[in-house]
């Protein structure tokens, strides 16, 4: 028990600090694929965020709402991180309905993100928010469906159910469904149209600067890490039965990084989609995947 708690304290600290580093690693890898040197060190994203915190806080007419909401967003994202098992089951996540709580918090993050980006009332940001909301709605629907399927499949509304999960085609397809929604939900090309630089001048982020932008960016990276952490949990948690919690806790950050890099490489290969094409292309992936998952479940493979 004490082992689990001390392990958890270390890991949650690592988990809260590591997302910007992962982004730095992503930038280095992206630079390699672009045949350029890229940022001097993988810590560059951290330096960027720290530098933003050193800048003065600019409060516009609607700035107060932005400040409050960004603080709320960051707090919610951090709380969400606490409800995620980090490669092993913690006192919080072994709770009877921890998966439900996690799902609700994740949706809460999304809603806060949308309301935060609505605050400046800038036309670019407003168009960006509409795009975000459109994509978010479709994506959240399938993410929640994937999580619900997971609950039914494991027969438990707690993360602990995943520990007992046996590898099967159904499990794989649920994983794929959640993976796709994690990819899209983490705002990557081709689905980063809310921040689409060329036409919207970084869209939803346009009015944020200094510490406000720092908080927003950090929340963004942490949310990304949470989504990939969920996927990593689906891989690592069943392994705890075999390798024990210390080993799984140690490989957990590596698995998150691996998922991060795979997603980063995929998004480098692709271009940005358009808001009217995006829903169609998303449904083209989601609907066959959902049907396949249901069939596999019914057949029982």
């Amino acid at each position: 028990m004490w082992l689990a708690i001390s392990l958890y304290i270390v890991l949650i600290l690592v988990f809260l600090l590591i997302p910007p580093l992962y982004d730095g690693i992503e930038r280095k890898i992206r630079a390699k694929l672009h045949s350029r040197i890229g940022p001097p060190t993988p810590l560059q994203t951290w330096y960027d965020i720290l530098k933003l915190f050193k800048k003065e806080l600019v409060i516009t007419d609607t700035g107060l709402a932005s400040v409050l909401l960004s603080g709320l967003l960051m707090a919610t994202v951090i709380i969400t991180a606490f409800t995620l098992p980090l490669g092993f089951s913690t006192p919080i996540t072994s709770n009877g309905s921890s998966l439900v709580l996690f799902t609700i918090l994740l949706i809460g993050c999304q809603l806060l993100w949308v309301s935060l980006t609505l605050t400046p009332g800038n036309p670019y940001a407003t168009i960006g928010v509409f795009r975000e909301a459109l994509i978010g709605m479709i994506n959240e629907f399938f993410l929640v469906m994937g999580l619900v399927a997971l609950m039914f499949y494991t027969g438990s509304s707690s993360f602990d159910g995943i520990i007992r999960a046996r590898p099967s085609l159904t499990y794989l397809l649920i994983f794929a469904l959640i993976a796709v929604s994690a990819f899209i939900g983490s705002g990557r090309i081709p689905y980063d149209i809310a921040e689409a630089e060329p036409e919207l001048a970084s869209g939803v982020l346009i009015e944020f600067s200094g510490p406000l932008l720092g908080i927003t960016l950090y929340s963004h990276y942490l949310k990304r890490a949470i989504l990939y952490g969920l996927l990593a949990d689906m891989i690592v948690l069943p392994l705890t039965r075999i390798i024990g919690i210390v080993a799984s806790a140690l490989i957990y950050p590596v698995v998150v990084l691996a998922i991060w890099i795979v997603f980063a490489v995929i998004s480098v290969m692709l271009g940005r989609t358009r808001v009217d094409i995006a829903p169609r292309s998303m449904l083209k992936i989601y609907i066959p995947l959902t049907i396949a998952m249901l069939i596999a479940w019914l057949v029982g493979v």
Binding site: K32, L33, S35, R36, I37, V268, M269
Partner: peptide
């Protein structure tokens, strides 16, 4: 086909310099 990027990037190496 878009994954050909990896082979292109690998062959051309890093072309920028630390000016």
């Amino acid at each position: 086909k878009p994954f050909k990027l990896i082979s292109i990037a690998h062959k051309s190496g890093v072309v920028t310099v630390l000016y």
